[in-house]
């Protein structure tokens, strides 16, 4: 407390103002009557109405959601497997290459990932569309999932797994009954991260998509390149609102879980 000085208070106030004022301005101007984003002409929700009747935009939103759900789910399975292999499988041939391939996509510029996947799809003569975007998103998202999950796997007590095996569980049962419930929070945050990355991605989707599929970021991109538009402000406001609600809910759930866990631990302590 003693060290929370005026300097700290100013740094935090200015810093958070910098982070949030642009978003607030964005939201405010989504309710502007005028087509010109720069002139305030009174309150109106007409841009939301126009957004909801814009079929191309709704189609793009649907494609994006589909891609995000499918790719983040596959990425969560593959990423959890990869994390398990990295932490538990011991030594095997090509382990270095394997860990390299997991970490490289995290630092690879999106333009390179996108370009290389597009060249692969063209080389294989695959029709580009939702399927190819899903493959691309799954590949980079599984690496993020595996990093999140493996940090949890490293920190948990392996003797619990060994106990399950000693008591006659098959390795798969031990994983399902012991390991999975313990790493579940990490698996869920991995899925959420993969889902968000997929929703957000413009560059890789632009490279790997064909004329048949347009994602929401691609749609936003083609419209904002021409300048500011109130309809995009309205769309942004909806997206910011959804994310805010999602993040607050998630943090409340984790908080509740932490409280419950502490209570259970205390109860367990009393019993022993």
């Amino acid at each position: 407390m003693r060290r929370f000085s005026w300097f700290n208070a100013t740094a935090l106030t200015l810093g958070f103002a910098f982070l949030y004022v642009p978003m607030i301005i964005l939201i405010v101007y989504s309710f502007n009557k005028s087509k010109l984003v720069t002139v305030w002409a009174g309150f109106s929700t007409k841009w939301y109405g126009e957004l909801l009747s814009n079929q191309a935009m709704l189609d793009a939103a649907w494609v994006t959601l589909k891609v995000a759900v499918i790719s983040s789910s596959i990425a969560t399975i593959l990423g959890t497997m990869a994390a398990y292999v990295m932490v538990r499988a011991g030594r095997f041939h090509g382990r270095t290459l394997f860990s390299g391939m997991i970490y490289a996509p995290l630092v690879m510029p999106e333009v390179i990932t996108g370009l290389s996947l597009l060249l692969l799809f063209i080389g294989l003569n695959v029709d580009r569309g939702v399927g190819t975007i899903v493959l691309a998103h799954t590949t980079f998202a599984m690496c993020y999932v595996s990093v999140v999950v493996s940090s949890r796997l490293v920190s948990f007590d392996q003797s619990l797994e060994e106990a399950a095996l000693d008591l006659g569980c098959s390795p798969f049962q031990a994983f399902r009954l012991v390991t999975l419930p313990i790493i579940a929070p990490a698996v869920i945050s991995g899925w959420l991260l993969a889902f968000t990355l997929s929703l957000d991605d413009l560059v890789i989707a632009s490279f790997t998509s064909g004329p048949a599929a347009t994602t929401l970021p691609m749609k936003i991109w083609s419209s904002v390149r021409l300048g500011v538009s109130p309809e995009i402000n309205a769309l942004s406001t909806i997206m910011i609102a959804l994310v805010t609600v999602g993040v607050i809910t998630a943090s409340l759930i984790t908080k509740q879980q932490a409280v419950r866990q502490r209570r259970e631990e205390q109860a367990a302590d009393r019993v022993s």
């Binding site: 642009p22 301005i25 964005l26 936003i220 300048g227 500011v228 942004s236």
Partner: peptide, 11 residues
């Protein structure tokens, strides 16, 4: 969205 955060500065 990253794109939206960049877009916010255009206006």
């Amino acid at each position: 969205s990253f794109l939206i955060r960049v877009y916010a500065w255009m206006g």
